[in-house]
């Protein structure tokens, strides 16, 4: 039941690009487009993770470069940013206790990447850094600048490691496929605990390792269904919710006695 597939429709196919007379003299720069057919996706409460497919097009592609497979595309779906506390356990008298902690501002809750080829084959680390592309290159702002760089580095690494381990940060190598010279399809993974909120989809085009163009679109992920209503009531009308929980317990206790009474 968790299977849902949001097809984010192909954007304008650049049919006129090939017919353009100007192309013969100076090759026009390539352009990349991703289009979303919908601005929101609803996931049900039983959602256990899924693949999200994004279609996009490559305009003014040079057929020669395309044939040699030297166009690379990296698609990122980045979740809303929130502050996060990272805690480290240390052994005190044999017991593992949370001791050190570091708070980071505005960490993307999720970060799913799809690429045509392994990231290290697409371009060099410096370009990634300049584009702040990839989970390893997102800048995480510590709330307390006074901490030593070594500590901050350690906790930043731990933050990335935990996010990857829980599936919130993922890389799908080969997740972007060319369907034709101009049309591509990107499959990014949504973790079961994908956060609700505004997600930003971005596509980066590289030609022979050089960054050419970027295109982005926004997507709202919402939860729907009965369980979500409970969650909302618990947060918005928490006192009434508590009264309901207590009444339900008393009713169950009373009914249980009526039904199963043995004395």
């Amino acid at each position: 039941m968790a299977d849902f597939r949001a097809f984010l429709a192909a954007a304008s196919l650049s049919l006129f690009a090939a017919a353009s007379p100007a192309r013969a003299q100076t090759p026009a720069t390539e352009n990349i487009q991703i289009g979303l057919s919908t601005d929101h996706v609803s996931i049900t409460a039983g959602f256990s993770g899924a693949d999200l497919t994004i279609f996009g097009s490559l305009e003014n592609a040079d057929p020669r470069v395309a044939r040699q497979g030297r166009y690379d595309i990296v698609v990122v779906l980045e979740g809303p940013a929130r502050p996060v506390v990272v805690r480290r356990k240390d052994r005190v008298l044999g017991i593992w206790i949370n001791l050190e902690s570091e708070t980071f501002e505005n960490v993307p809750v999720s970060y799913s990447v799809a690429t045509t080829r392994p990231l290290q084959d697409v371009t060099d680390p410096n370009s990634y850094k300049q584009l702040s592309l990839g989970a390893a290159n997102i800048y995480m702002q510590p709330a307390d600048d006074g901490d030593s760089p070594a500590t901050i580095q350690e906790f930043t690494a731990a933050l990335r490691e935990r996010k990857t381990a829980t599936g919130l940060y993922s890389v799908n190598v080969g997740g972007v496929q060319f369907l034709s010279q101009n049309l591509f399809r990107a499959t990014v993974r949504l973790a079961p605990n994908v956060p609700v909120g505004t997600h930003k989809a971005r596509a980066f085009l590289f030609k022979s390792g050089l960054f050419i163009k970027e295109s982005s679109a926004q997507l709202e992920i919402r939860k729907s269904g009965f369980e979500q209503s409970i969650f909302r009531v618990a947060h918005d009308f928490s006192f009434l919710y508590g009264v309901f929980a207590v009444s339900l317990a008393m009713l169950t206790g009373w009914l249980g006695r009526l039904v199963f009474r043995k004395d």
């Binding site: 929130r82 502050p83 996060v84 506390v85 990272v86 805690r87 480290r88 356990k89 240390d90 044999g94 017991i95 593992w96 949370n98 708070t103 906790f155 731990a158 933050l159 490691e161 935990r162 996010k163 381990a165």
Partner: peptide
């Protein structure tokens, strides 16, 4: 559980 080394020493939580 208190004494066994946890699988990850680090944990994340919201603020």
């Amino acid at each position: 559980d208190l004494f066994v080394t946890p699988p990850s020493l680090y944990s994340l939580s919201g603020v």
